[in-house]
């Protein structure tokens, strides 16, 4: 379904934040904000929730720890126990101090990579993906607020355009996307 989108461009992060507040105050849903760097304090205005990737990392970390413990136990205790420095190698627990380093490293390894990969997938950023920012300048010094008509059934394009004109815009554009 074709959808109308309005791109309002700004040249400053504070103005963008004020504009987003302006739209939200009028009941407009701000679909997305493109910016060259994270604008602090805009997330609560446009209703972006804090990412839960931290929990993802924790889960991956637990997995890594479990895999490391099971793996070490199998390899060095069950399958091929070795007597190292007179220490009992037939028991995981009593030999644990020397397994801690690898357990720790493996936990970090899995947590970091698991989270990073999830992050790339969630952001749809992978090698070869096309850039979807509406204007190339949004990675430099321009800020764009995207208003989708789809998200704002109560407003017409003209409503949105006139609202945008009340803010401190630099450029304004209306587009149809598929």
């Amino acid at each position: 379904m074709a959808d109308k989108v309005i791109y309002a461009m700004y040249d400053d992060d504070d103005t963008t934040k004020d504009a987003a507040q302006h739209f939200v105050d009028k009941g407009v849903h701000v679909s997305e904000v493109y910016s060259p760097f994270p604008i602090h304090g805009i997330d609560p205005i446009i209703g972006v929730e804090q990412s839960r990737l931290g929990i993802v990392a924790f889960m991956f970390g637990l997995t890594g720890l479990a895999v490391a413990m099971i793996g070490i136990r199998y390899m060095n205790i069950i399958d091929w126990p070795m007597n190292i420095g007179g220490k009992p190698n037939f028991d995981f627990f009593h030999n644990m101090p020397s397994f801690v380093p690898v357990m720790f490293e493996f936990t970090v390894l899995i947590a970091a990579h698991g989270m990073a990969f999830t992050y790339l997938l969630r952001n749809k950023t992978l090698p070869g993906m096309p850039a979807r920012n509406p204007d190339p300048r949004t990675t430099d010094d321009r800020f764009v607020i995207e208003l989708r008509l789809e998200d704002n059934h109560n407003f017409s394009v003209d409503d949105l355009l006139s609202m945008a004109k009340q803010t401190n815009i630099v450029e304004l554009e209306e587009k149809t996307i598929k």
């Binding site: 997305e32 904000v33 493109y34 910016s35 060259p36 760097f37 994270p38 604008i39 805009i42 997330d43 446009i46 972006v48 804090q50 990412s51 990737l53 931290g54 989270m115 990073a116 992050y119 790339l120 969630r122 952001n123 749809k124 950023t125 992978l126 090698p127 070869g128 993906m129 096309p130 850039a131 979807r132 920012n133 949004t138 990675t139």
Partner: peptide
């Protein structure tokens, strides 16, 4: 190299958390 980065607000939020 840029993996199709677009710089949306959600992406930046995740970026900071990560």
């Amino acid at each position: 190299l840029s993996f199709g980065w677009t710089g949306g607000a959600k992406a930046w939020n995740r970026f900071e958390v990560v």
